[in-house]
Structures are given as structure tokens and as C-alpha cells.
Design a protein around this nucleic acid. Structure first.
Lengths: 337, 337
DNA sequence: TTGAAAGCGCTAACAC
DNA sequence: GTGTTAGCGCTTTCAA
């Protein structure tokens, strides 16, 4: 690797001048010397060492992102959207897959902070509290994504309006005339899961129906677990005619479980789920689902992070992004895609 | 941020001793001083600055990974498996999504090398040649994943046995009695796509059938593009009864296109695809597909990279990983999942 | 318009 | 067993 000093030597100038031309500043250099430097850079194929630069200026232009499961389509889409905006802003993304493991998550927080990332985006695997403790004593700008934290804490968060989403989904199922509407929720310690569940509950109660415990089942956020959960539900409860599922991933398994019992969707059984991942348009039947503005979520997250990087611990904000029902076929509506 | 010098001062020792206890070497320190240092570290909540360390030792313990589209389920799975092994080995992953854009890919190569990653894993978006030029003059260990390069080049690669996969898939369709077997390939400049296509071609020819151009269609690697391509194919060619699709993503769209024409799969029409992403088990009907050993691919890639990091430009290797047919329902076989 | 020099936080070779 | 010191490659202030 060639260094700045070698360039300086070849160009016959001092090291600082090389720096000025590489960074276009902070001082001006005469066109002729600039030319010489540029030629030397070209000739030696010089590339500035950003590690050395980072040490000096105390900025790495790197951001950390930790997610529970990067191959889950929802997170994959979120990661992509975040990566995109990071790239636009000249930042590089360090990615950590916590694999739904709290220890690993905390490990990554530490590793990324040691690597001096300028900011951190975190989607917690389990509860956010322990990671929060870790982060608080780290003096590292961060924002919590897709997880709600105690309102009293001075922590920036961005989430979708999960409760409203659960409500809208259930309401739509009620509108189709269903009364026995079950809910397939996710793990209870994740706030999106809890909020979507609450939305279902409220819609049921508003309609004068009981959100009874035996209408509620839970599973991890995967198609396979969704499949098993619904399979079991249908074996024990034959009167159910509709289901609100807390993620599209689970719904993909749910569809299969329902179909295997010989029921036709949507004729005999309706499903509305949540997320609107791109696969939702290609299930059979296509999923009616609550659209989560994934791109916007990524965009807002980074914007908030950059904001709090400029204004360290000044202001924090809690953003709740709107959701809407995206109608396809699984709910019983007539129109396709 | 507290630094090593502050720790040294509080513990009443020299800076090097702090270094020795933090790194468990290279020199021994007496238990008592070690204790003092540890206490100071604890008290000040000291975290070593790995940027400074990297500058000194010329190792960042960071690896770069560039993929064409991180939200594509296949790449998402690949990224996850690579991240996992990187983590096990104490490396952090910088991730770059090229968005199928050659310029952006090259941009990332440059950015990652400036960041002094210890090694790079690349899945090219378009042709690998331009990126290869860039990499060659960079003196950065790298391995090309899921793309073949000219055998004569001293470049390490790991790919699945795509041609055999295409052959096996088509052979299975032939075994089911199909004769008019079309092929939905991917972009022709990507080697996996070209190789899978060749597998189809060879199987057809071996069976004495013509791999005629009007049995071949192409689309990008997405469900939506797969859908459009097959839709068009079926409109213009009514005699086709089976289809080999070069990726599961495309096949998900293909399934839908076929079903919309009123045909039943697998009764009237059979499909075998490629990749065996986790979603393939949940389509309807579930996809029979060529299993690509994604985890192993990640594992082997990193191993090869670590190898060539230790042995700079000494030896390179070209690994071809075996594939196998994973039978579900879309091909016409009777057994499920 | 440019050069010299200090120093970012760390490691490790050289002293003792 | 421990302290001192010379850098790693860079930015930027201080001088000229």
C-alpha cells in the first residue's frame, strides 16, 4: 500500500499539500502543484487510508445496524433500505445479525462501539432494556427501530403504528361478516407483536365480541412456526372462520395449514396479516395485509440518527409511521393484486 | 471516551502494561498489577479503540461483502450464513448492496479497500471482469462467490454446480414424461444463469429433444419478472407442459402465471426450479427445486478467504459445491414437503 | 501558497 | 516484570 508520504515525495511537495488536494481543502493549493500531486496519486495508485483518517478526525463514517434475523424477509427489506440511505450519505454499514440472541446482540453493541461507529441502529431481538443499559453508558448516538421503549426514557425510536394496523386488519375481517376471528401473534415480549395483538383485541371488543384467550395463539416469526401454530389451532377449534396474523411470514405458513385442512381461502376462511413484504403478492391466494412503510422506516431511522449525531443527546424523538390496509384476496375481497 | 493512558495513570502503571493485560500478552504482567489495571478499566469503563489498534497492527478484523441485491431471499440467506461464520471467527462484516449496478459495486470495492478490510467477498452484479481489474491492482485478498471466472485467472471462486443442477432438474421433468420443457433463465451475463441454462440444454439434447430458442425465455431474478415472462410464454406457446426455472424467486412468479391461465400444477403443468430458498416449501404447490448448499457456500467462502489472507497470493482454488434435487410437489411427484 | 510538526490511541521492540 | 519510545497514516495548526 502506498502512503501519502510517498505521494508527497514523488510530487516533490510536502505531505500536507497532498492532504489538501485529496480532501479539497481546507487550504487552497495552486493549480500547478495540484496537477503534480494528482499525477503522483495516479501513478502510485494511491488510496487514502481511512483508518488513519478516522483516528485523526474521530469519525469513521461507519454506522452499525443490528437486527434479530437478517434473512427474515421483513428485516432483509429493512436492511436494504437502510443500506441504501447510508450509501447515499456516504456511510458504510456494519451489520450484525443477533440471531435472536440477547448476548450476541450486546456483543455486537460492544464490538461496534469499539470500532468507533458514528452511530448505531438497533432492532432488539428480545427485550430492549438490557441493550439500552449497555448503550446508555456508551455515549454513542443510536436509535431504536421497530421497537417501542418506555415513553419516559430519552431514547429516539421509530416504529410503525402497530396497534392501528392490528385494529384495521381485524376491523376489515369483521366487515366481511366474520365473528370468530382468531389472532396469531408473535412473541409477547416484542412490542410490535404486543401492539398488533392489542389492536385485534380492541377491534373485537368494539364489535361486542370477546377477544377470548382461546382465540389467541402465538408463534415465532417464521412460516414454519406459523404453520404449526395454525395447524394446532384448527385441530382444537373448529368454529373459527378468520384469522389475523401478526406477520406475513407467519401467514405464509398459516395459509398452508388452513389449505391442508381442506378449507378454501377466502371462501371458507379469511386471513389478514401484517408487513406487506414483497412475497405477500405471490402467495395463493395473495395476502391482504397491513402495509408497513419499510423504506420510510429506514429513511426516517437514518435521518434521526444523523440528526442526533450532529446534536449529541440534545433532542430525541419518537416517530410512529402510519400503516394502511393493502387488500388482495385472502380477506375475501373480489379484486386481485 | 476514556483512553489507555488514563487507565494507566489511574492504575499507576505504564501504558504498555495496560496493553499487555488488555491483549493478554505479548508479555506477562504480575497478578497484582494486572488486578490494579483491571480495576481501573472497570472503573473508567474503558474500551480499547480498535481503530487505533488497526492502524498500528495493520489489521482491522473486518471483512467486506458485496452482493447484487441483499433483499433477494437467496442472497439474504447467503449474507446471513456468511455473517454467522465471520462472527464465529471474530470478524465484523461490512456490507455493500450493489443494487445490480456495476458502478456501485466498484464504488464499494474502493470504499472497502480504503477502509482497510482484511478481505473481500464479492458476488458480482453483472460481469465480474471489471471488478476483477479493480481488485487485481488493490492487493486485497478476495474471493468471488456464486460467479465463475475464466479458469486461467488466478482467482479463488466458490460456486454451486449449476450446470449439473440444470441438468438434474430437466432430467427429472423428462422422467415425468414431459417433452415440451421450456426454460426460464436469468440474465445471460451471469454465470450461474448461463450454466443452469446449459444444463437444461444438455438434458434436452441427450433425450433427443431440441432445446429450441422458442422454449427459452429470460427474466431478471424476481418473482414479478418471472411472472411476466411466463405469462408471455404461455400466451405464445400452448404446447409447453413443463418448465425449468433458474431460481425459486422467479418460480414463485411463474407458479402464479401458470395458475392464472387455469392450469393445475402439477396435473397439467410441472415446474422445477433452483436454489431451495426456505420459501420454496411454502408455495402452492410446494416447489421441487435444486438445492443449493447456501450455508456451505458461505462457510467455504470465508474459509477460502481466511486462507488466502494468511497465504497472500500463494495459492488460489476453485470450489464447485454439489447440488441435489429436492422433491416436493410442483414436479408431479406424489409426496409432499 | 507551502512546510514542519504535533498528535489521534494504540502496539511492541528496546531498554532496564 | 515494567517503563520508555518510536511509529502506524493521517489532519491541521503554527510558522514562514
Amino acid at each position: 500500500m502506498t502512503t501519502r508520504d510517498e505521494v508527497a515525495q514523488l510530487a516533490g511537495v510536502s505531505a500536507s499539500v497532498v492532504s489538501y488536494v485529496v480532501n479539497n481543502g481546507p487550504r487552497k493549493v495552486s493549480p500547478s502543484t495540484k496537477q503534480k500531486v494528482l499525477e503522483a496519486i495516479e501513478k502510485l495508485n494511491y488510496r487514502p487510508n481511512s483508518i488513519a483518517r478516522a483516528l485523526r478526525v474521530k469519525k469513521t463514517l461507519a454506522l452499525g445496524l443490528i437486527v434479530p434475523d437478517s434473512s427474515n424477509p421483513f428485516f432483509a427489506a429493512l436492511v436494504q433500505s437502510i443500506e441504501d440511505i447510508a450509501y447515499e450519505n456516504g456511510y458504510t454499514l456494519l451489520i450484525g445479525n443477533a440471531s435472536n440472541d440477547q448476548e450476541r446482540e450486546i456483543d455486537y453493541i460492544r464490538a461496534f462501539s469499539e470500532r468507533q461507529v458514528d452511530g448505531l441502529l438497533l432492532v432488539s431481538s428480545v427485550s430492549t432494556t438490557r441493550s439500552l443499559e449497555q448503550l446508555q453508558k456508551l455515549d454513542l448516538p443510536f436509535v431504536i427501530v421497530d421497537r417501542l421503549v418506555d415513553d419516559k426514557l430519552s431514547v429516539s425510536t421509530v416504529v410503525a403504528d402497530n396497534e392501528t394496523g392490528g385494529y384495521l386488519a381485524t376491523e376489515h375481517l369483521l366487515w366481511h361478516g366474520h365473528k370468530n376471528i382468531a389472532c396469531l401473534a408473535g412473541p409477547s415480549d416484542l412490542t410490535p407483536s404486543a401492539d398488533r395483538y392489542r389492536g385485534w383485541q380492541k377491534a373485537m371488543e368494539k364489535a361486542g365480541l370477546e377477544a377470548s384467550p382461546n382465540l389467541l395463539i402465538r408463534s415465532e416469526f417464521s412460516s414454519l412456526q406459523g404453520y404449526f401454530a395454525v395447524k394446532k389451532l384448527l385441530e382444537t377449534n373448529g368454529s373459527i372462520t378468520a384469522l389475523f396474523v401478526s406477520t406475513d411470514s407467519q401467514a405464509i405458513g398459516a395459509l398452508r395449514a388452513v389449505i391442508e385442512t381442506g378449507l378454501d381461502i377466502p371462501r371458507d376462511f379469511a386471513i389478514v396479516s401484517f408487513d406487506n413484504i414483497s412475497q405477500a403478492a405471490f402467495t395463493c391466494p395473495p395476502l391482504s395485509t397491513i402495509n408497513q412503510p419499510i423504506e420510510q422506516m429506514g429513511k426516517v431511522s437514518i435521518e434521526m440518527l444523523l440528526e442526533s449525531m450532529q446534536n449529541p443527546k440534545a433532542n430525541f424523538s419518537k416517530q410512529v409511521l402510519p400503516v394502511e390496509l393493502s387488500i388482495r384476496r385472502s380477506c375475501g375481497c373480489k379484486y386481485a393484486i
